[in-house]
Design a protein around this nucleic acid. Structure first.
Lengths: 217, 217
DNA sequence: CCTACCGATCGGTAGG
DNA sequence: CCTACCGATCGGTAGG
């Protein structure tokens, strides 16, 4: 679950039973994160413009004005969702790429790992953050869009060396830059149709995608 | 331009110069279609929920209440945009598929034709209708969604025989149903990044996609 | 974080 | 198709 890689640390052990809110336990960070999670879920299901800040407040168990104690504006909430989504996706990707086994693997297996990681980021349980980024970016202002674009560039940059290697070996029959757009498009679209409860698993989805895109050497 | 295949017929010849609105010339169909075009463009750029009926009215040169003379509600306008988009896409697809040359072609060439046709529908100048359908369906109610789903099913049904043939011949290395989802996803995503003014043309885009997905026999 | 509230905007309508 | 308008909702804020 990539959105836990960087999520706020669990509050430390405390006595069992109903948690009582003492002053030193209040932990605003958790309430803020509750808002983020509620916002991500609603933005994904209904879209940014169709979601009201009242919806989000209610989903987080707050009153209508309270989200603005944590976020300056509805826009800022959207941006925070996307930033958290991309930061955790990046962290997950780095975790997987920096392993010795991955560095030693063939380009095909490296691509398989990237594809699998991407599917996990998109389709894992509770992973609404990145889908929101994929489908609601037009609601950002110019400055926010630029920042998100940087995170996306960092995320996608790890794909290019692998694709270039595959193009050179003849296993990828398309120019790497265009191949990247087409392949990531095929994966990103899975958000629209994937159903965890039926059909293929993420594992077979990954293998199918590799079989479709890659020629044996 | 697929959205002209089924568009309202041009008004017949009339005297040169500034068209005067006489009674028998009023042609409500054209005003209605102006609204549809304006709505499609705005829904695509800003999304359905972020577009106001006043925006649409202004873009069509009307007053704020006038769209409701042509459409019962904002929802009905969205649905009409999607329906027109899919009807014209279907018409274009049929036109291309029913040609004798296409029937005689190899499965690879048949797929190339379908891909090319799909790119044209998505990326052709002024073709905002189908992108709106792809990215705004969640704003439809259940009944509308079902109707749109039927049009999509009709559109996609022409792909399956071709993909099945390619799978059997070993040129497609993935089960046809999953391959269809991945391939159409790759194409549909092009709406997000394609820029007619720079980069690849639709023709090279088509050839690249085929090279990526299909193994030589 | 809640209460109470404001100004602006929005979808939609009556009547012509 | 325009004019004039209404009721509801929404993002956001002051003050505690």
């Amino acid at each position: 679950m990539p959105d836990q890689v960087l999520s706020a640390p669990e509050t430390p052990k405390r006595p069992r039973g109903r948690p009582r809110k003492t002053l030193d336990e209040r932990d605003d960070g958790n309430r803020r994160h509750d808002l983020l999670k509620a916002a991500a879920q609603l933005f994904r299901r209904k879209g940014f413009a169709a979601t009201t800040t009242r919806d989000i407040a209610a989903a987080a168990g707050m009153q209508s004005g309270s989200p603005f104690y944590h976020f300056k504006s509805k826009d800022a909430l959207l941006f925070a969702v996307m930033e958290e989504g991309m930061q955790s996706a990046l962290a997950r990707q780095r975790l997987v790429v920096e392993t010795p086994a991955h560095r030693a693997a063939s380009p095909v297996e490296q691509l398989r790992t990237l594809v699998r990681c991407h599917f996990d980021v998109l389709l894992g349980p509770g992973n609404d953050f990145v889908p929101v980024m994929l489908y609601e970016s037009r609601s950002l202002n110019t400055r926010q869009r630029k920042q998100v674009a940087q995170l996306i560039a960092a995320y996608e940059s790890l794909w290019m060396p692998v694709l270039v290697a595959l193009e050179k070996s003849g296993q990828l029959r398309a120019p790497a830059p265009l191949a990247r757009l087409l392949i990531l498009g095929a994966l990103n679209w899975s958000v629209q149709w994937f159903d965890a409860k039926k059909g293929a698993s993420v594992a077979t989805l990954t293998d199918t995608a590799i079989a479709l895109f890659i020629k044996e050497s």
